[in-house]
Structures are given as C-alpha cells and as structure tokens.
Computed example of a mutant assay.
Amino acid sequence: MQRRYFPIALAATLAAGLAGPAMGQGAWPARPVRMVVPFPAGGSTDVVARYIAQKLGDKLGQTFVVDNRTGAAGNIGTDAVAKAAPDGYTIALSTSGPLVNNKYLYKSMPFDSEKDLAPIALVCEIPLVIASNPRVPAKDLKTFVQQAKADPRHYTVGQPGNGTIGHLALEQLSMATGVRLTTAPYRGDVPAMTGLLGGEIQALSAPITALIPNLSDGKLTGLAVTSAQRFPGLPSIPTAKEQGIDMVATVWFAVVGPAGTPQDVVNKLNTEINAIVSSDEGRAKLQQYGGIVNVGPPSALRTLMDKDSQKWKAVIEAAGIKLD
C-alpha cells in the first residue's frame, strides 16, 4: 500500500485551521454580552441588573445588554439562559425563586438549576419584613403572634401571592411558633401594602424593598426583619431570631450562566461583580432596594442554593403549596 505524505507547510496550515475554533475567539468578552432578567423592566431585579451591566461594560470594554424575558415566576427567562450556548455571552441576573423555590412549587420545570446552570456570583440578599398597621397594639413580632393566637379572627396577615417568598415566610413562621396565622394573598407587594395601610389586614409579610419609605416615615410598624442580621437601612427593627423565633427568609439575587460556561469567564465575572457591589457606591445603590451585599466565590452561591433548597422544600411540602 502506497503511503501519502503531506508537505510540512500544508500540514501546519491545516492544523492551525483546525485549532482555531478550539482555541476560542480571543480574550473574553470580544463582543456584547446578553444579561437576561426574568422579571419585568422597572422592578428591583431589573434596576440592579442594569446597574451591574453598566459597570461591567465600563470595566470590561464591551456592552452588556439587559434582556427582560418574563413569565412563569422567572422560569422562562432563566430557562433561556440554561439552554443558551455556554460561551460566556449569555448570563442571567436571576433570583432565589427560579433558582431554588420554583422546582418545589411547579409540577414540571423546563430546566434543572443544579445541572443546567453555572453559579457565577451572589449579588445580594433582600430580607423580608413583617410589618403591621400602627393601629395594631403589638410592636414586635413575638407579641403579635401571641395576640393573633389569642384572637385569630381579628388578625389577618397579608402576603404578595401564593408561592411567593412572603407566603413561604409565613408558613415558616407558623412552623417555628406553632401558631397558624390567618393569611390573605394579594397580587403583588404594592396591592398588599395598600391593603395594610387601609386596614384591610393587620400585618404583611413581604420583601422589605417596597415597604422602606412607609417604615421610615412611621406609617407602618416593623415587627421583625427575617434576615440573620438587622437591615442596615432600618436598624431599629429587630430580627425574628432576636425575638426567639427561629426563622430566616430572604430573597436573593445572583448571576448565573449556562452549565459549561468557561471557568475563566466565570472567575472574571465573579471578581468584577464582587468588586462592583462591594464598593461604597454599590452598597449604597443596593441598600436603596433593600439589598444586603453578600459576596464570595461561585462555590458560595452553590452552597446557598443547596442550603435554601433543603429549607424551602421542607416548608413547601409541609404546607402543601402547588402553583400548577
């Protein structure tokens, strides 16, 4: 059998051509990056995403385009990222809902957050607050629960909608205290707050973001925040744990990418996002929306996802909550 030999120059040329795609497209980012936000424009998630996108663009010299993909409690937009090419050019600023809670609330999910997404960076945690109308005699959560147990017909606690973190926090509160509270679901934080201000309900469990102005002005009473530490923007409100109630409930924002995103891209994004949100400007910006900066390596985000997954699975299953 006759052997054929390629000239050395031709072989080198072919090898270079084959190696080109494998070697990548040069330093990342070499073109605009899409940051998907799975919630509507104008909300706190969107505003935080646009701030981070602008800062990343300034630092890395490429445009970071925010793309709002809404629907199914954040599942649609997060799924779009899970199914995107893992090349570093599609990422998401998502929340603990689609990243953790939704898989226990919906019968079927279009993605598996553990297998289909790469954790990149935790941005912040937003505590919930349990706030009451000032006409309610109780001025702390422990006393409120005691009064609600003694006279449940006159104590109704609102929440922003079934399956929301405000709802789950109330279920967690019932499990922690052994007191089943009468609850009322609303269609969002703002309608629930309006009901509270108008006296339709006596208290409300919701992320602190929408309630900050009324709490600051004394139009609402902060019975407790449900974070591990007090919220810096309203330090006079004690935590539930300080009052002997073993509960922690926060909603958190995090940046993720498709599984398989190059590790050097993940590391670069993690470093830059940590620097952005840890700056004095970043901390002040996030605090406006109730955010407490919480940074660390990608592994810290994975640990938080696993920890919250176990916690909220237990609460959701015990309460029998289903959204479809």
Rank of each mutant, 00 (worst) to 15 (best):
M1N: 05
I52R: 01
D87C: 02
T239S: 04
A184R: 15
T271N: 03
S96T: 13
W312M: 06
M247I: 15
L128K: 03
A12G: 05
D246Q: 14
D189M: 11
Q147H: 12
P98F: 12
L304Y: 09
Q2A: 10
L93N: 10
L286F: 14
K311E: 05
V48K: 02
A49W: 06
I8C: 00
G77W: 08
T95H: 13
M175W: 05
A150N: 06
G163I: 03
D112K: 08
D324H: 11
L204P: 00
T90Q: 11
V179E: 01
I120F: 11
G244R: 12
V190H: 07
K107V: 02
L220H: 08
A22G: 05
A206P: 01
D87H: 08
T177E: 04
Q62C: 02
D87N: 13
G291S: 02
V65Q: 09
P40D: 03
A118D: 10
P134D: 04
I212E: 07
N294Q: 11
H167L: 03
A300L: 13
N75V: 07
G282I: 03
D151F: 13
P235H: 12
T90D: 09
L197M: 13
Q243W: 14
G61D: 04
A275H: 14
K142M: 09
A22P: 01
D324Y: 10
S108P: 00
L269S: 05
T143P: 06
A85Q: 12
G97V: 11
S96L: 04
T63A: 08
G188L: 11
L56W: 05
L122F: 05
A184H: 14
S113C: 05
D67T: 11
S216Q: 15
A319R: 11
I165V: 05
N270K: 06
G161C: 00
G43M: 02
R283P: 03
T209G: 00
K241M: 01
Q2V: 12
A92Q: 04
Q172E: 07
D306F: 01
L56M: 09
S299G: 06
F64M: 04
E125V: 10
E114H: 06
H167V: 03
V251E: 12
L173N: 02
S279T: 07
V277E: 01
C124Y: 09
T13S: 07
F253Q: 10
H167R: 04
I316W: 03
E200A: 08
K139L: 07
R34G: 00
K285I: 15
D87I: 03
K219A: 09
Y5W: 13
A85F: 09
P160I: 04
S94C: 10
